[in-house]
Amino acid sequence: MAGATEVLVTEGQRVASGDVIARGEVTDAHQLLDLAARVGVRADKLEPYLLKREGDLIKKGEAVARKRGLLGTSRSATAPADSRLVLLDGGKALLASVRPVELRAGLPGTVVGPTSGGVVTIETAGAVLSGVWGNGRDDFSVLRMQTAEPGTVLHGGLLEASLRGAVVAGGSVLDAGFFEGLAEIEVSGLILGRISTSLLAAAEKAPFPVLVVEGFGEGGFSLPVFALLNGNAGREVWLNACAWDRNGSDRPEAIIPLPANNAPLLPVGGPLVEGKRVRILRGPEAGRVGHITGLSDRPMLLPSGIRARLAVIALDDVPGQRPTVSAPFANLELLI
């Protein structure tokens, strides 16, 4: 939050998802008042006539400076709107129209680390599901699996009143009308495996968070993602469907808080080695998940004619089978 921010929590404090952790204000517009000209003095002679100081909140019509004349007359410079005086300089005042905002925790957890500098870090134990697309909204509610299979396509026939307030999960969506249906029911969010790019505009307009986990086009959840969601149906999930900023730290995700078990933090990233679990990002096997069983030590020829080092992957998303495929290192995403 820009401007003055008041952090309301302290290190070690437990917070619930709806708790307000900070208050501040945002600026909507500015007004520059030439105080000296309005009260009729030189800029360097204004000081005795000032009624307000930097940081003061001023009501609409309230005087910022006033010079009294003879016979009870006066010349005033008044605020054109409720605002905060943010700068006094050179006989002028800069006023900012501000409104208060509150920041909620978003998920249950414990405040860790110092809260100085306007930064609050909340730690929670749970499962994290990283996505690839979000519509910029977030919410926290109970997860409802509206799909029996990873690839189930959600359609109007599956809408029911009992979904009100829930975060709904499904493989993909049939048409834009489904988002309107969910909005009417007032769901708290939607998690999809895949989405057609033709439906992105409708998803963007949805009044609830929409998180896409796997990618774009036909298909649904990969088996491991489906298993994760299915295994946590009925639990609360925080859906942070922000836009993915590859250069920053924002990535759309779902966090499912779980009872703390003091398990060590899982490592993030690391080198590609045998046994690592990966998702294939490109080619005929795109979206499939498996474990690395071998790595080429020199570049191999791909059907495209490009030479690249390859990983052999035993796919584990086909129940009862372990077919193997190969994919270039560059086309793999490392999973935890």
Partner: peptide
């Protein structure tokens, strides 16, 4: 086409083509 390009841009920007169509 749109699905391919959106996937390339958001999910797999640094990947390499694996077959002739991809190339």
């Amino acid at each position: 086409i749109r699905d391919f390009v959106e996937t390339k841009s958001r999910v797999a920007p640094h990947t390499v083509p694996v077959n002739a169509d991809d190339l």
